[in-house]
């Protein structure tokens, strides 16, 4: 065959040592491998053909009369569940920091008996301190002005308690 000769001549020109090596197939296969391969392939193809595709299976399931009621119930439960979980996700409980202060006050006043008195007192004092501190910061007073204010306005007993 012309191609074989061409290939050999081409090889002899480029790689004389390689051209001298006898071409042989060193790999082997298990006994009867090529006799059995066509059957193995046919078997695999038959198996693949038997396996119904998921959409075909679903279609068959839906159109069969004996399953219609079960499918309808399943779909209804699925949709109800979907809406229920999505409603909770889309309308979550309001965050504490999103509530208006007046709303909280109203709720606390209406349900005062449910709260621990000491806890309420503690929180009120803390809020008072914070609001006082922020009011002082906003005024941007100098130390001297604060001293003057304390000397003029505070009574001696208070100064003694705070400074000593």
């Amino acid at each position: 065959m012309k191609t074989d000769k061409d290939i050999l001549q081409e090889l002899q020109q480029i790689a004389p040592q390689l051209a001298k090596i006898e071409k042989k197939q060193p790999y082997q296969v298990p006994a009867n491998y090529f006799e059995e391969l066509p059957q193995a392939i046919q078997k695999e193809i038959s198996l693949q053909n038997q396996r119904p595709k998921i959409w075909e299976w679903l279609y068959q399931l839906i159109v069969q009369p004996q399953y219609r009621l079960a499918v309808a119930v399943f779909v209804a439960v699925f949709i109800a569940g979907f809406y229920y979980f999505n409603y909770n996700t889309m309308n979550p409980a309001p965050e504490f920091n999103q509530l208006a202060l007046e709303e909280m006050d109203t709720y606390i006043n209406d349900n005062l008996d449910d709260f621990d008195e000491s806890l309420l007192l503690e929180n009120s004092m803390a809020m008072l301190d914070e609001s006082t501190e922020s009011a002082v910061e906003e005024m941007e007073l100098t130390d001297e002005e604060i001293e003057d204010y304390l000397i003029d306005e505070a009574d001696d007993q208070f100064l003694e308690e705070e400074l000593l």
Binding site: P26, Y27, Q28
Partner: peptide, 9 residues
Amino acid sequence: FFDGDEVTL
């Protein structure tokens, strides 16, 4: 399943 001499290897 390999049966080759040193040259083939």
